[in-house]
Amino acid sequence: MRAPALALAFLVLAAVLTSPATAEDWGAVGKVNKLISVKASPELAPGDSGRFEFYFNSTYSEPMYNVTLNASIYRYATIDESILIDASWPYAYPKIGETGTREWTWTSVRVDPGTSRLLNFTVVTAADSRDMPHGSVFSQSSYFVRFSVDFDGNVSGTMTPFRMESPGFFTDALWKQATSANATNPCTPPSCRGNVNLTILGVDGVVPDSAFGVKEPIPRWPFYMLIGLAAFFLVLAFLFWVEENPGSYPRVEAWWARTRGRIVRTVAPLRHRKTPKA
């Protein structure tokens, strides 16, 4: 009797000390919105190219399998207008250098928990406004980038597909519907998270959008002209000071007297020139 009782005691103790396994919440807002974090978004002059760099972070405690991450340029916007970039976009640019299109894709068979990968693609622009619209010196403009993440995650021993999308995949009407009070009150996971009805959007989570800028750079010649004018007036002020303080800088004083005399002799005939009578 003692042996079975001792074994039962060990089983009870093991059950008490062993913490129950916690299922991964793949759609938790605090994990989904940190999957993608932008490191560097380029600000380009028309015709330039630049790196768009971002981190793909595994915010989960379990591995992600069959991961596909997609980034695409989907909207052009200024203060005055906002234009969707789709099949009807009439311009050849901007585009992504690695693919020659406006989309870029990265895949991985497995992403381990807690890892972070620095990814990037090259944004290519055109100098001619006939090839792509862009901002001017006094007008800001941006091209927006949207992301989607597809992967398989373990749910109670079953591999389940998940899809996360950024707001750029949804129309304004659909987004307003998904965030309306009627659709989010009450907001019960997993169909609703962070006051966004995911069932209406047809996704398991919402990742952030991003953007890059394309505008004509501020010309440098006004800056150089201001520096030149400042230097000129500084020298002129020094010469007037030398004139008012004779003997301080004899050589400079003598040179300034000769130069001023030449200027007077050159300007004097112009002052006394009279307009000939008809």
Score class of each variant (00 low, 15 high):
residue 2 R to T: 15
residue 4 P to S: 06
residue 7 A to K: 08
residue 8 L to H: 12
residue 12 V to F: 06
residue 14 A to R: 10
residue 17 L to H: 09
residue 19 S to P: 08
residue 20 P to G: 10
residue 26 W to E: 01
residue 28 A to Q: 00
residue 31 K to Q: 12
residue 31 K to R: 08
residue 32 V to L: 09
residue 35 L to R: 00
residue 37 S to Q: 09
residue 38 V to Y: 13
residue 38 V to H: 12
residue 39 K to L: 13
residue 43 E to N: 07
residue 44 L to P: 00
residue 45 A to S: 08
residue 47 G to M: 11
residue 47 G to T: 09
residue 49 S to T: 10
residue 54 F to M: 08
residue 55 Y to W: 15
residue 56 F to T: 00
residue 65 Y to F: 13
residue 67 V to R: 13
residue 69 L to C: 09
residue 70 N to I: 12
residue 70 N to M: 00
residue 70 N to T: 14
residue 72 S to V: 11
residue 73 I to L: 01
residue 74 Y to H: 15
residue 74 Y to Q: 14
residue 75 R to Y: 12
residue 78 T to M: 13
residue 80 D to I: 05
residue 80 D to R: 04
residue 82 S to A: 14
residue 83 I to R: 04
residue 84 L to M: 15
residue 89 W to F: 13
residue 89 W to T: 11
residue 89 W to N: 08
residue 93 Y to C: 03
residue 93 Y to D: 13
residue 94 P to T: 13
residue 95 K to Y: 07
residue 96 I to H: 00
residue 100 G to F: 14
residue 102 R to D: 15
residue 102 R to M: 10
residue 102 R to S: 11
residue 103 E to M: 09
residue 106 W to E: 09
residue 107 T to G: 05
residue 108 S to E: 05
residue 113 P to M: 13
residue 116 S to N: 11
residue 117 R to Q: 11
residue 117 R to Y: 05
residue 118 L to M: 10
residue 120 N to Y: 09
residue 120 N to I: 02
residue 123 V to G: 09
residue 123 V to Y: 03
residue 124 V to Q: 06
residue 124 V to K: 04
residue 125 T to C: 01
residue 126 A to V: 14
residue 126 A to R: 01
residue 126 A to I: 03
residue 133 P to F: 00
residue 134 H to P: 12
residue 134 H to M: 15
residue 135 G to T: 04
residue 138 F to R: 06
residue 140 Q to S: 06
residue 141 S to C: 07
residue 145 V to N: 10
residue 148 S to G: 01
residue 151 F to K: 02
residue 155 V to M: 08
residue 156 S to W: 15
residue 156 S to L: 10
residue 157 G to P: 09
residue 158 T to M: 10
residue 159 M to D: 06
residue 159 M to Q: 02
residue 159 M to W: 06
residue 161 P to W: 03
residue 162 F to C: 10
residue 166 S to Q: 06
residue 168 G to R: 00
residue 172 D to M: 14
residue 173 A to Q: 05
residue 176 K to M: 11
residue 178 A to K: 10
residue 180 S to V: 04
residue 184 T to V: 11
residue 184 T to Q: 02
residue 185 N to E: 14
residue 188 T to K: 06
residue 190 P to R: 03
residue 191 S to N: 15
residue 191 S to Y: 06
residue 191 S to D: 06
residue 193 R to G: 15
residue 194 G to T: 07
residue 195 N to S: 14
residue 200 I to N: 03
residue 200 I to C: 08
residue 203 V to G: 04
residue 208 P to Q: 03
residue 210 S to L: 13
residue 214 V to A: 11
residue 215 K to M: 10
residue 217 P to R: 05
residue 218 I to V: 07
residue 218 I to L: 07
residue 221 W to Q: 02
residue 224 Y to A: 03
residue 224 Y to N: 00
residue 224 Y to L: 02
residue 228 G to Q: 01
residue 230 A to Y: 14
residue 231 A to H: 09
residue 235 V to W: 13
residue 235 V to M: 06
residue 240 F to G: 00
residue 241 W to Y: 00
residue 242 V to I: 13
residue 244 E to H: 14
residue 245 N to S: 10
residue 251 R to Y: 04
residue 253 E to N: 13
residue 257 A to C: 04
residue 258 R to N: 15
residue 259 T to L: 07
residue 265 R to Y: 01
residue 266 T to R: 02
residue 266 T to W: 15
residue 267 V to S: 05
residue 273 R to W: 07
residue 275 T to V: 14
residue 275 T to F: 13
residue 276 P to R: 01
residue 277 K to H: 10
